[in-house]
Every structure is written in structure tokens, then in C-alpha cells.
Simulated scan of single mutants.
Amino acid sequence: MSTLSNVLEFSPADSEVANTFFSNKLSFETDCSDVYADIKAGANDYLLLDVRSKEAFGKSHAITAISMPHAQITAESFAQHPKDTVFVVYCWGPGCNGATKAAKKISALGFAVKEMIGGIHYWEDFERYPVNRNQANAQV
């Protein structure tokens, strides 16, 4: 008697379809490791936005991040940015959809945006990358 694999209950996608899917996925997201590598290398071709509350930002945020709570993202709050500005957004972590909400708003305003998966939780607690604490709430 053969046991049906839970993994293969649904057949894997054709390699061309899978390649398209994963390429598209990477155009929407990045991770803490890539962002930190860019920071260390001095790559500054995007703005890193912490979209949590100002209070959460003040307690701890990724180095170089700017505070912009997702509820405050509007055409007016982004008016000073050229349309070719790229944003990378993050919130608390996998259990939070604040970064997704922010990315939706920012893209609707006509800007390129990526979500940093893992958020500050992965940045600080798992990767142990440097953070700034108890600072004024610098805003975009």
C-alpha cells in the first residue's frame, strides 16, 4: 500500500510557470538580509519606512528607517517625493499586515514599493541587526 504524499497531493507547477511566479514574488518583497546588506554597502536607492505606530518606532526601529505609520500615508504626505522614489516598508512581523496596507497605499499613489518580509521582529530578534532605540520620530 502506497502512502500519498501531502506535499505532492497537488503537483508542482511547471518550471516555466514556477519561474514566473517566483520572479513576480521577488518584485513585491525583499528580506531583512538584503536590506541590511544594502545598508552596509551604502546602497541608498530606496527609502526604508517603518509603518508601525510612532510609539513602536520610538522604542526600536531598523537603522536608517523613517517613521511613516500606514494610517498617515496619503497623497499629501508623499507629495514631496519624486515619482521615481522606491520605498521598502515593514511593520512588526509575519503576524502583521500593516506593511501590506502601506504598500497598497503607496503603490496606489504611483510609487514603486516592496515589503520587507519578517519586519522588525525578524530584523531585531532573529537576525540581530542593529536598531535605533528611543529616538525622536523622524518622518518621511
Rank of each mutant, 00 (worst) to 15 (best):
A13K: 15
A13T: 06
N19S: 14
N19Q: 12
T20H: 01
N24A: 11
K25C: 11
K25W: 13
K25R: 09
S27T: 07
F28T: 09
E29I: 14
T30A: 09
T30M: 02
C32D: 00
V35R: 14
V35C: 02
A37I: 14
A37D: 05
A37R: 14
I39L: 12
K40T: 06
K40D: 02
A41W: 07
A41F: 02
G42C: 04
A43H: 13
N44F: 10
V51G: 03
R52K: 07
S53T: 12
K54D: 14
E55S: 15
H61V: 00
T64I: 13
S67G: 09
M68V: 15
A71S: 14
I73R: 06
A75T: 09
A75W: 02
Q80M: 11
Q80G: 10
H81M: 09
V86R: 13
V86E: 15
V88W: 02
V89L: 05
V89E: 03
W92K: 10
G93F: 06
C96L: 01
T100N: 11
T100S: 12
K101P: 09
K101C: 04
A102T: 01
A103Q: 05
I106P: 01
G110H: 04
G110S: 04
G110P: 08
F111H: 01
F111I: 05
V113T: 07
K114E: 15
K114S: 14
E115Q: 01
M116Y: 01
I117A: 06
G118P: 00
G118E: 00
G119K: 02
G119Q: 03
H121L: 15
H121C: 05
H121M: 08
Y122A: 09
E124V: 04
F126R: 11
E127A: 09
R128G: 08
